[in-house]
Simulated scan of single mutants.
Amino acid sequence: MYQIIQQHQDFIVINKSPNVHFHSQDGTAGVVAKVEADLKIKLFAVHRLDTPTSGLIILAKSSQAAAIFTALFSEHKIQKFYVAIAKGKPKKKQGGIIGDMAKSRRSMYKLLRTKTNPAITQFFSQSIDNGLRLYLLKPLSGKTHQLRVALSSIGVPILGDELYGGEAADRCYLHAMALDFEYQGERFQFKQLPQIGTAFLNPLVEQQLLDAWQTPADLPWPK
Results as ranks from 00 to 15, higher is better:
residue 15 N to F: 10
residue 91 K to V: 14
residue 5 I to K: 09
residue 77 K to N: 07
residue 211 D to F: 09
residue 192 Q to V: 07
residue 191 K to D: 06
residue 116 T to P: 04
residue 189 Q to P: 01
residue 127 S to P: 14
residue 176 A to D: 04
residue 49 L to S: 07
residue 152 S to F: 09
residue 181 F to S: 01
residue 178 A to T: 09
residue 26 D to L: 02
residue 9 Q to C: 08
residue 156 V to P: 11
residue 112 L to C: 05
residue 208 Q to S: 10
residue 20 V to R: 12
residue 126 Q to D: 06
residue 61 K to A: 06
residue 64 Q to M: 05
residue 164 Y to S: 13
residue 34 K to F: 07
residue 194 P to Y: 02
residue 3 Q to Y: 12
residue 179 L to Q: 05
residue 41 I to C: 09
residue 87 K to N: 05
residue 36 E to V: 01
residue 222 P to G: 03
residue 126 Q to N: 04
residue 159 L to M: 06
residue 21 H to D: 13
residue 101 M to E: 06
residue 88 G to D: 07
residue 155 G to H: 15
residue 34 K to V: 06
residue 48 R to Q: 11
residue 190 F to M: 07
residue 71 A to M: 02
residue 53 T to M: 13
residue 26 D to Q: 12
residue 189 Q to A: 09
residue 27 G to C: 01
residue 217 A to N: 08
residue 203 P to V: 07
residue 95 G to K: 14
residue 112 L to F: 03
residue 28 T to P: 04
residue 81 F to D: 13
residue 94 Q to R: 14
residue 123 F to M: 12
residue 125 S to Y: 14
residue 196 I to T: 07
residue 2 Y to G: 00
residue 27 G to F: 02
residue 197 G to H: 09
residue 84 A to F: 02
residue 17 S to G: 04
residue 41 I to M: 12
residue 85 I to D: 09
residue 97 I to M: 14
residue 212 A to C: 08
residue 22 F to R: 07
residue 135 Y to I: 12
residue 202 N to M: 09
residue 156 V to L: 11
residue 5 I to T: 01
residue 134 L to C: 13
residue 201 L to Y: 10
residue 63 S to I: 02
residue 177 M to Y: 05
residue 109 Y to A: 05
residue 194 P to A: 01
residue 122 Q to N: 15
residue 1 M to P: 08
residue 164 Y to R: 13
residue 133 R to C: 11
residue 140 L to K: 13
residue 10 D to F: 03
residue 104 S to A: 14
residue 83 V to S: 10
residue 152 S to A: 15
residue 97 I to R: 11
